[in-house]
Computed example of a mutant assay.
Amino acid sequence: MQQVVKMVDTLNKAVGIILSLMLGVMSILIIVQVISRFLIHFPLTWSEELSRYLMMYIVFAGASLAMRHNQLISIELLPELISAKKRKVVIILVAILSIVFFGILFFQGLNMLEHVQAQTSPGLGISMAIPYAALPIGSLLLALNAIALIFDISSKKEDEK
């Protein structure tokens, strides 16, 4: 179990670095787009589209990092009212249900890739499979992090939090 958690944590470090780079590129692109549109009066036709596609990857991969540390937005009324042992069970059940959802999302994302791979994006001229791949990649990362969360929580003792 601990090997799986360590493997996912190593993957998450790489994902975090990639996310940082993507966020930096997206921020620079948006600034350059604003400058080129309003100061130079020469808008870049592809920068807004690339920024949008980068944002899709950032959201999915960032959500997977939040999943690993149980930091996704949630309503915690029930877990706060029950004992630590029951709270652990509730968190694990929610993670298992999430894995089922991420599995459905993964396979539907793959199905969607088949339908859009022949289409090209208007600004960049790339296959639409590239931006749509954020869905299966992100859902796979989310599922892996949910599994690591389950292993991590189930291995903790009652007095740990």
Rank of each mutant, 00 (worst) to 15 (best):
S20H: 00
L21R: 04
L21M: 11
L21G: 13
M22G: 11
M22N: 10
M22I: 14
L23G: 14
L23F: 12
L23C: 12
G24H: 08
V25A: 06
M26D: 09
M26V: 02
I28W: 05
L29G: 07
I31M: 05
I31T: 01
V32Y: 09
V34N: 01
I35L: 11
R37G: 00
L39S: 13
F42P: 05
P43D: 03
L44A: 01
T45Y: 08
E48F: 06
S51A: 07
S51R: 00
Y53E: 03
Y53T: 02
M55C: 05
M55W: 07
M55F: 02
M56I: 14
Y57D: 06
Y57G: 05
V59M: 07
V59P: 01
F60D: 08
F60N: 09
G62Q: 04
G62D: 06
S64I: 11
R68E: 01
R68D: 02
H69P: 07
Q71V: 08
I75M: 15
I75N: 12
L78V: 15
E80N: 15
L81T: 07
K86Y: 11
V90M: 13
I91R: 09
I91E: 06
I92F: 09
L93N: 09
L93H: 08
V94S: 14
V94W: 07
A95W: 03
I96R: 14
L97F: 14
I99D: 00
V100G: 11
I104E: 07
Q108W: 08
N111C: 02
N111E: 13
E114H: 03
H115R: 11
Q117F: 13
Q117I: 11
Q119F: 10
T120M: 12
P122M: 12
G125D: 02
G125A: 04
A129N: 02
